[in-house]
């Protein structure tokens, strides 16, 4: 193997510092969440305890975080499923040119880059003027989709750009209907990427703040609840909450990545060796 140039070591240390920059702060609050009962928001550690984690389970100390967590979880699932279905369908549609396709494409891009507060403000105004009550499961749900669906769509573009159309042609030649082609050929082939779309849908919804701010109504989602805490909670209990919800996110990411990997393994095991010259 070729000897590594000196620039490798310079860049590798830069990369290491970057990773430290990304993860360092989060690790710090993870450590600080184990502060003793008399400990403050910064070092030094004043003893080690689970005090602040216990505090999270006491209603009066922190408000309704468990209710907020349940709502965020449910909303995350709703957004995830809608995002997967919506982006796959739109991805299929965009493989052909149809009237309005470029308008729809630019709308999706606009949806991604528009300042989030505009969605929040606009949706809030519409609901108010029409006399509807804003609620996380209606206005909040729709507002979050304006953020997750375009991401899903971009992933589907990436997937279909690499999709070998001859599989579909083969299916059609064998007499498959267009629904059968999608159900038994296209979807199984793109299945691993759908896990990626689902990951985006769930996590982006679970952590979404700006577009939900004016559209969630009187019942907060978890990020809104946490933000409310930042203004009036001055104890490490907020670090404990941050640590738990980050661990939860990491668990979700791990679950999706593991599923992705397992599907790949399964595929390698059961896949045909046709055309490989074995």
């Amino acid at each position: 193997m070729e000897k590594r140039p000196r620039s490798f070591y310079v860049l590798a240390s830069f990369f290491g510092l970057f990773i430290l920059f990304l993860y360092g702060p989060t690790l710090t609050i993870a450590i600080l969440s184990f502060q003793g009962p008399k400990g403050g928001l910064t070092f030094p550690m004043n003893g080690v305890s689970l005090h602040w984690f216990r505090d999270l389970f006491e209603q009066q100390a922190v408000g309704d975080i468990w209710g907020a967590f349940r709502r965020s979880l449910l909303l995350g699932f709703m957004v995830m499923i809608t995002t997967v279905v919506g982006s796959v369908m739109a991805g299929l549609a965009f493989r052909k040119r149809f009237a309005g396709s470029s308008v729809l494409f630019y709308l999706a891009i606009t949806s991604l880059v528009i300042p989030s507060i505009l969605i929040s403000l606009g949706v809030g105004l519409i609901f108010n003027q029409l006399g509807f009550r804003v609620h996380w499961a209606t206005s909040g749900f729709g507002s979050q989709l304006t953020w997750t669906l375009p991401f899903g769509l971009l992933i589907m573009f990436a997937v279909f750009n690499r999709f070998d159309k001859s599989y579909e042609e083969a299916a059609r030649d064998q007499g498959a209907s267009s629904w059968q082609t999608i159900r038994f050929v296209v979807v199984p082939i793109i299945a691993p990427s759908l896990i990626g779309v689902a990951l985006f849908g769930f996590t982006l919804s679970y952590d979404e703040f700006a577009r939900t701010l004016l559209t969630a109504g009187s019942y907060n989602t978890l990020p809104l609840e946490i933000f409310g805490m930042t203004t009036n909670v001055t104890t490490p209990v907020i670090y404990a909450l941050g640590t738990l919800t980050t661990l939860f996110s990491l668990g979700v990411i791990g679950f999706f990545l593991l599923t992705f990997w397992l599907i790949g393994k399964r595929r390698a095991r059961f896949g045909s060796d046709a055309g490989k010259g074995l």
Binding site: L92, A108, G122
Partner: peptide, 20 residues
């Protein structure tokens, strides 16, 4: 196939912008 995306974007992107 494009309808779900279009409906969401009309309801929660275009309409809010017009409203604003």
């Amino acid at each position: 196939q494009a309808a779900p995306l279009a409906v969401i974007l009309l309801g929660f992107l275009v309409a809010p912008i017009i409203m604003i």
